[in-house]
Design a protein around this nucleic acid. Sequence first.
DNA 1: CTCCGCTTCTACAACGATGTAGAGTATAGA
DNA 2: TCTATACTCTACATCGTTGTAGAAGCGGAG
Lengths: 354, 354
Amino acid sequence: MPVRMQDVALRAGVSVKTVSNVVNGYPHIRDSTRRRVEEAIDELGYRMNVSARDLRTRRTGMITLNVPELSLPYFAELADSVIRAADERGWSVLIEQTGAERERELEVLAGNRRHRGDGVLFSPLALGPDDLGHFDVGFPLVVLGERVFGARADHVTMNNVEGARAATAHLIASGRRRIAVVGAHAGEVIGSAALRLAGYERALADAGIPFDPALVGEAGLWHRSTGAETMARLLDSGTAIDAVFALNDAMALGALHALHERRIDIPGDIALIGFDDVDDVRYSVPTISSVDPGRDEIARTAVGLLVERITGSTEPFRRVVPPMRIVGRRSTGDTQGDGETVVAALPGWLEDIP
Amino acid sequence: MPVRMQDVALRAGVSVKTVSNVVNGYPHIRDSTRRRVEEAIDELGYRMNVSARDLRTRRTGMITLNVPELSLPYFAELADSVIRAADERGWSVLIEQTGAERERELEVLAGNRRHRGDGVLFSPLALGPDDLGHFDVGFPLVVLGERVFGARADHVTMNNVEGARAATAHLIASGRRRIAVVGAHAGEVIGSAALRLAGYERALADAGIPFDPALVGEAGLWHRSTGAETMARLLDSGTAIDAVFALNDAMALGALHALHERRIDIPGDIALIGFDDVDDVRYSVPTISSVDPGRDEIARTAVGLLVERITGSTEPFRRVVPPMRIVGRRSTGDTQGDGETVVAALPGWLEDIP
DNA sequence: CTCCGCTTCTACAACGATGTAGAGTATAGA
DNA sequence: TCTATACTCTACATCGTTGTAGAAGCGGAG
């Protein structure tokens, strides 16, 4: 029933291969022939059977993006950027959600799930350093995020430590001394939480401010709700606080909520800075300062690396850390209106993974 | 280089078809044979070539979701729900962004874009009633949203008019009389803006309140920023206002921002209700009441209809309108804390498109 | 006039799976 | 014992495209 190249060829009076050549823009075709074929295509309403082409060329032109959930704004924006970056290069993106469940994340690496597409972009959230072995997969894979370092795969990550240090340093520079942290993960040595906390501690040390565990609020999941709860706990604990570093923006928004409820003036009484620079923080009241990890750059780089692998690159695995910016807004008193100002910029870099 | 069924068959000492049968769970296979095949699969690390299967079965198991942008929270949450619903049925989802550009939306219908997957879920934002003809496409298509009614395709939409009426009525019930609207589109007769405005007007009429054009604020794009701008314009105009109906939640959040800046008490001075019930409105300060269009239900229904079409249904086209709820939160004084309460529930329905 | 190289096109064999038809066995019923 | 039925497995064609190899025509250089 569906129209095949065969049918087009018959109608145009040429061979199937010539139709294929026309469709694929092969240059050595007489204009008159090309026109005849194109007319036949239009008349019959021919559309290429992608599966057949994929089978023959051993390539699908699709990549799979595995994220925890699209309803988390950071991942929605990341997916947006990835789709754009892929589209620019003519690739399509299949999206799967792992729900940050360990089992499903392992399935991504095992390749047990329906295995479509030529490669995988994977942003794990449940897996950790112990799972390093699982990352040695047999298909093109680019890992995103901070859960796993040293895997045998290309890796696009952020300069978490320096970003956190710069964010904290920015708070310190405005005279804050009692800086609370929202979102720590006790006992973790790797992952965004641990790295950002390390940056925080380093900034304190640089400024000669003693580290006070009472200022560190734990939060397992990095959602708005947990940010609000953690902030509330910190405030109720009675510890003196004059600034808050939320380890991501979702929690910063939650923390803002908790601060508002207690009618605490921001940044008058307490300054606030987040991490991720999602769109939301530009529209909260007050607007929230944040660390911009360069989402577009991350997406573009990741797609680029993946496509290189797919097309056969055998370079050593690489870790890419795009440049970052600390964006000052009203929650740290850097602006009055809705504007924003870049208060620090950190360079990116690229290194081989041994 | 890659392992084929052929290789597995050779190793297990069976025919290719038997391997295929094992992989696809065909029942009449001796246990010992099945085990041998499974061992061979493990030993060789065999993974099915999906393109070959798709070619032979004439089905890909994928659907394409076309949305404006994933960075708009409503569409991110919709995509989340669609992926879940598809996954439950064993389907994968390819996501493409149109950026709400007319050209790209037309391309979706023309099928000119790389045409992968067995069907399309399409949420247009730029196309309108004039483009109805374009929707008569040759592939399974389910339309989402309010831009186009009466297209020759299945359609999952919302009860916009009644939802808006109920939302407005809720404001009126709490004693408000000067209810501003944020996000109207002048001259539109169809689409979310027009329908929701119609519901608003109907609620006013029901209550015998005269319609005052000065209370209607236009906003082309429904973003947070335009919501803030429109709200600011309305406030600056000097019109008396004691409540705001934002035609979607993004604008409600923007409006909230503008209200806060002027230190207006919510809901004391002005009550606020939005539309969509995105996650954000549960974490703003105060939390914002909204109309919940039943996102999960929309997604599940849409995926269900699409899969039916793909598997050959020839039923008449149907329009489905899932049930809706009006969720009361602090911005309308329905709760004190972070809780929420369902202040109204509207039934859904299903109808054939002639 | 021949040879070479370029252009234009065709024939045929893949790519790797599954549907169909049917060949052997085993099991049960008559 | 013989047939009918169910189970287990195989051979072969086929899905719709593209890669390969090469044929035919043409123009220009030698």
